[in-house]
Design a protein around this nucleic acid. Structure first.
Ligand SMILES: Nc1ccn([C@H]2C[C@H](O)[C@@H](COP(=O)(O)OP(=O)(O)OP(=O)(O)O)O2)c(=O)n1
Ligand SMILES: [Mg+2]
Length: 713
DNA sequence: TGGCGGAGG
DNA sequence: CCGACCTCCGCCA
């Protein structure tokens, strides 16, 4: 089977055998597990395809590829920047630490913050038992019966987050908070000031130099000492293979040329770096001390010439420690050589598996060595990003580093959504009702931010854990709950019909999660985000403000922080972002397996028509533009299911109609209209009929009149 | 360009 | 009997 518990920054000494066994025992029969396995199989297929593609790569061509990769590497090397000092500060077991601090009795007990369904984080005692973040509570309990569950208190965490940010700003006013417990600081300025160094010179050398290895022993403080590097040196593909400084703009620092030697004489620049990083280590101690003093909590710090490295470093000596990857190129490469690629921000489970199983790449050293293969199978964008990471080249600029991570310093938001997990729901009526609830909530959120969206999306997760999304874009902007619901419910109808049509008689859409998303905001590409606050913060506060969810779920989540670094370039040119996907040669999409409906393994659920079709579907036969549907309110009440005009009927009358209508349409689905791809053919019908579409004006705006939560049950 | 799945955090 | 929210990538039509 697949990897369950990978080693995290918890404790290495965990009875992994036992943990995995228990998790497996508890999961093997669950829908979740089955779905996970399906996805894993798909991944295996992708890996297989990559292998095939690689096999076809002859020695000659591979050498060619490697040369291409070298070209990229050289180009990237020119961007290498070692004169900035970046710092990533990450609180230790954040939520749990806060809770334990406020409840001393818990100090010696294993604690989990979260609920029965999901654990947000745990303290070290719990981690020793294998209980960690993102693990469902019931498994955590099985793993550790004494586990004490504590409900998350986001407001409290937010207060703490503000406290530490206040401190961070003193050292870097441009500091970026990635999440409540993580922040990115560029402390170059403070340090140069403290040391009375000339800050300008640092900026000067854009094209970066590398330093002599002689500084290495000064550089690391932590477990990553300059230990046995001598022994691994030989095998170090990075240093050996890479065409060192042949292309570099080496005019200035010539002595750095031999970066394998010990440099007796140091260039001024080199000396500056050493002093800078030395001071940085002291600064980190200072900051940690201040955090402890102000919050009674501990944090770990990572220092490096760029954020990618600093981030990795911050995890190195995790509990209450710090680590520094100096600004010496040789040291950076030495450090990376044996570093598992998984440590790179942006490389997750999938990337890791593809690299390892298809390319035999496990460490960054391997990654660079296989660069030829990398660019052969991966997308150009991803290849470039990976090569860059393997060389430890990244940006020292907050905005670049935190970019696409809607991280806190982000300026705009591109979408906003609301989703809820609940106990199984399948009655169309309940589904619609839930949809309405979510739309209400989303609308409220949008209102506070003054957002108007052009596209509305629906997300659905079946009880089998299959996730599906749909979007519909109109020509008008919407923001009211009514309009959101009008669009979302239309989409939901498609799902309902699709399920009914594709599955056996009586088949229906059974969901455990539903979400509604709004995007394509008015005014520019994105909407401004709260000042200084991460979207995450906004999320937490809004969530805390809302009432609890319903259903037996309760969970306790927060968002997960995200982060990314990489890329730089400021000189234009193709930019790069972390991965996103690996190049995916052809796409078989074994729809049959994943889509319960649609017997013929034809395609999307209910052979969901794509693009155009979608719009057509939602659009009323009359030819009224979607925009009208979305934007308009609904003067006249009409049924969201059949579209029949209901006039000014009373709520009860409307409800009655709804029930009748749903009762007929839902189960019957395949009956006459067959709904989507219905029938045994499995073959999709002409677009026109693919979806019987409620040929009516889906101005469900009226539905809320009676489908409002309170009234319906 | 719009839409959807997916990866990653 | 496994969360909520968000961004970007890749592929398709
Ligand atoms: N899947 C996840 C991961 C994290 N979090 C929350 C809880 C954490 O307290 C907080 C910070 O995440 P970290 O990854 O930094 O984890 P911790 O701070 O808890 O532990 P560590 O000591 O490893 O940093 O984010 C979450 O809700 N769900
Ligand atoms: Mg943390």
């Amino acid at each position: 089977m697949f990897v369950f518990s990978n080693n995290k920054a918890g404790m290495g000494s965990v009875d992994k055998e036992r943990v995995n066994r228990i998790i497996y025992e508890m999961s093997k029969n669950s829908s979740y597990f089955k779905q996970a396995k399906l996805q894993d199989d798909k991944l295996d297929q992708k890996v297989a395809e990559m292998k095939v593609k690689l096999k076809a790569l002859g020695t000659v061509r591979k050498a060619q590829r490697t040369r291409q990769a070298d070209k990229i590497a050289t180009e990237l090397e020119a961007q290498r920047q070692l004169d900035e000092v970046c710092m990533v500060i990450d609180m230790d077991m954040f939520y749990a630490a806060v809770e334990v601090r406020d409840r001393p009795e818990l100090a010696d007990k294993p604690v989990a913050v979260g609920g029965e369904s999901m654990i947000s984080t745990t303290n070290y005692q719990a981690r020793l038992k294998g209980v960690r973040s993102a693990m469902p509570g019931f498994i955590g309990r099985k793993l550790c019966p004494e586990l004490v569950f504590v409900k998350p208190d986001y407001e409290k965490y937010t207060v703490v987050a503000e406290q530490i940010r206040e401190i961070f700003r003193e050292y870097d006013p441009r500091m970026r908070a990635y999440s409540l417990d993580e922040a990115y600081l560029n402390v170059t300025k403070v340090l140069t000031e403290r040391l009375g160094l000339d800050g300008s010179n640092a900026q000067a050398g854009v094209a970066a130099p590398a330093a002599a290895a002689g500084a290495s022993e000064h550089v690391c403080s932590g477990t990553y000492e300059a230990e046995a590097d001598t022994s691994r040196r030989p095998s170090m593909g990075l240093n050996v293979t890479y065409p060192e400084k042949r292309y570099e703009g080496d005019e200035e620092d010539d002595e750095e040329a031999r970066d394998g030697r010990s440099g007796e004489r140091r260039s001024p620049r080199e000396t500056r770096r050493i002093r800078l990083f030395e001071a940085a280590r002291a600064l980190a101690e200072e900051i940690r001390g201040r955090i402890r003093e102000a919050t009674k909590l501990t944090a770990s710090v990572g220092i490096g010439p760029n954020f990618m490295l600093a981030k990795i470093a911050s995890d190195w000596n995790k509990p209450d420690g710090q680590m520094c990857i100096g600004g010496d190129r040789a040291e950076v490469l030495r450090f990376l050589h044996d570093l598992p690629v998984r440590k790179i921000g942006g490389v997750g489970k999938v990337q890791e598996k593809c690299l390892r199983e298809a390319l035999g790449v496990v460490t960054c050293g391997d990654l660079f060595r296989e660069r030829g293969s990398v660019i052969h199978v991966m997308t150009p964008h991803t290849s470039r990003w990976l090569i860059k990471a393997s060389l430890g080249i990244a940006s020292a600029d907050h905005d670049v580093a935190t970019e696409q991570a809607q991280a806190v310093g982000a300026v705009t938001r591109k979408q906003i959504s609301k989703e809820r997990t609940f106990g199984e729901l399948s009655a169309p009526r309940d589904l619609l009702n839930k949809c309405r609830e979510i739309c209400d909530s989303l609308a409220a959120e949008m209102a506070t931010k003054g957002l108007e969206a052009k596209t509305v999306g629906l997300k659905v997760k079946t009880t089998k854990f299959q996730v599906r999304t749909q979007d519909s874009t109109g020509n008008a902007y919407v923001s009211s709950a009514d309009d959101l619901f009008s669009a979302a419910s239309a989409l939901l109808q498609r799902e309902i019909q699709g399920a009914a049509a594709a599955s056996a008689p009586g088949g229906k859409l059974r969901l455990r999660l539903m979400g509604v998303r709004a995007s394509g905001f008015r005014g520019q590409a994105g909407a401004p985000i709260l000042p200084g606050q991460a979207t995450l913060d906004g999320f937490l506060s809004s969530k805390a403000a809302e009432g609890g969810c319903q259903g037996e779920d309760e969970s306790g989540n927060d968002g997960k922080r995200q982060q990314r670094e990489e890329e730089a370039d400021s000189a234009g040119g193709a930019e790069q972002q972390p991965p996103g996907g690996l190049s995916r040669p052809s796409r078989p999409t074994p729809a049959a397996m994943e889509h319960p409906f649609v017997g013929g393994g034809q395609g999307r659920p209910g052979s969901r028509p794509r693009s155009k079709e979608l719009l057509r579907g939602v659009q009323p036969a009359t030819g009224i533009p979607r925009s009208a549907l979305l934007a308009t309110a609904a003067a006249n009440v009409s049924c969201p299911v059949c579209g029949e005009e209901l006039g000014a009927a009373s709520n009860t009358a409307l409800n009655r109609h709804l029930d009748a209508c749903l009762g007929v349409c839902a189960p019957a689905g395949e009956g006459e209209r067959g709904g989507v791809g219905g029938g045994g053919t499995g073959r999709r019908r002409s677009k026109e009929e693919a979806f019987p579409k409620k040929r009516a004006k889906v101005s469900s705006s009226g539905i809320e009149r009676f489908l409002t939560p309170k009234e319906l049950v």
